[in-house]
Design a protein around this nucleic acid. Structure first.
Lengths: 230, 230
DNA sequence: GTCTATAGTTCGATAGAC
DNA sequence: GTCTATCGAACTATAGAC
């Protein structure tokens, strides 16, 4: 029996509040950008400090060490995004209506994308952090994925099963995992599709890509259903 | 017009030949394992030397520096795998037969998987290296992806278009990108599906996963075809 | 809360013996 | 071809002034 965990780590929020005049937020912004560009090991505290316009020592004063800085950065952004994802998903089921598979898959990705687009510079940074979560088996990444992303994942898995009852519970999990895999193609923005299509397929065009991956993912899920052995 | 590059970097082969009694191969094996476990920046030359049972200086004697060691490791394994992929794909089109989409997608992944399975210990290492290629926008990874993987990618993209002429050339590229994204779910072996399904969905069961992703990917591609605006 | 200065460690790479 | 020993640079983290 697949059990659902509904709490969404809403307790984990940024320590800095609105009106905070410290350099707290600037450090987190810089950390997000540098970690996304260079990876955890490749990111240097000096580089983050320089990008944030603060002394290196200040980062340690606020966050203690590199690992805690990383988790704080993840907690801030994921908390905001996943609350929006949960509300969007729940909103699809009001008045006992059954949403389309397309609606659910769109709700899976849109808040992350829109949060990125709403940011002043390089809104794709946090998406790249998420890509590293989805694809790393390392304890740090899987630990954070478990803590900050598994609860909302279980909600989407349940939604898949609820609107497509012929999808087995196991296949609902696979449907989720594969959807994330396809989504990472959009989030990673490697530019490879541009190369392979000689300039035609632009992975920087988020709106077009979202439409494509929703079609693809829903087609994949329906194929899983049709191939279920009864 | 999407152009095809058919050369497969067959010129890039391991420098060490059969019967080579040097520690050359042992270093590459250790590098593959350590780079896969820790990432490029996280991998330490000391750690690779220790794992290979050689002195650190010997790695520099053979490979010059860390970056060249990394590329040599990629070149050795990708050369072997991609030659097998190309032969398998070409074999599907002999006697002017048209293979199924399922056959082509299987040919996309099977050689990588089987090469891993044939290895004594931790055959999943190189798959993890590939995951980092597929999802990193960093120059090192995209440079190696372009050099060692774009040529074979173009062959598969053309195969998609050839057996499904209603698939636009652009959508054939998306079909390839998304297939790789789904495949990464299998190659990364993060163990997340096991968590999310409470032990039911094992991403370590390669045979079962390959069947699943082939069904899913083909369903996704057919959905792209059906949604083409004419 | 923020800075400068630096301690203590670890890294990639090299020199030179065998 | 392989080893030991070590250099110089760069890293995380801390101490202490303001």
């Amino acid at each position: 029996m697949i059990q659902v965990q509904t709490s969404l780590n809403e307790n984990v929020v940024p320590i800095a509040e609105k009106g905070d005049e410290s350099r707290f937020g600037a450090i987190l912004d810089a950390a997000e950008y540098i970690f996304a560009s260079s990876g955890y090991e490749g990111a240097k505290m000096r580089q983050i400090a320089e990008n944030a316009g603060v002394a290196q020592g200040l980062i340690h004063y606020h966050f203690g060490n590199k690992e805690k800085l990383f988790e704080s950065m993840v907690a801030r952004r994921s908390g905001h995004i996943n609350n929006r994802r949960a509300k969007l998903l729940d909103g699809l089921f009001v008045d006992s209506t059954t949403p389309s598979l397309e609606d659910v898959v769109t709700a899976l990705f849109r808040p992350t994308i829109e949060t990125g687009l709403s940011m002043a510079k390089d809104g794709g940074s946090f998406s790249r952090i998420l890509v590293s979560f989805a694809n790393s088996a390392a304890p740090r990444e899987q630990g954070l994925a478990e803590r900050y992303y598994d609860p909302i994942a279980r909600k989407f898995i349940n939604a898949f099963h609820e609107i497509e009852p012929r999808l087995t519970k196991a296949d609902a999990v696979w449907a989720y995992m594969f959807a994330i895999g396809v989504g990472m193609t959009m989030m990673a923005k490697t530019g490879r599709s541009l190369r392979l299509s000689d300039g035609v397929c632009d992975d920087g065009n988020i709106d077009e890509m979202l439409k494509k991956i929703v079609i693809y993912i829903c087609g994949g899920i329906r194929a899983l259903i049709e191939n279920t052995e009864n």
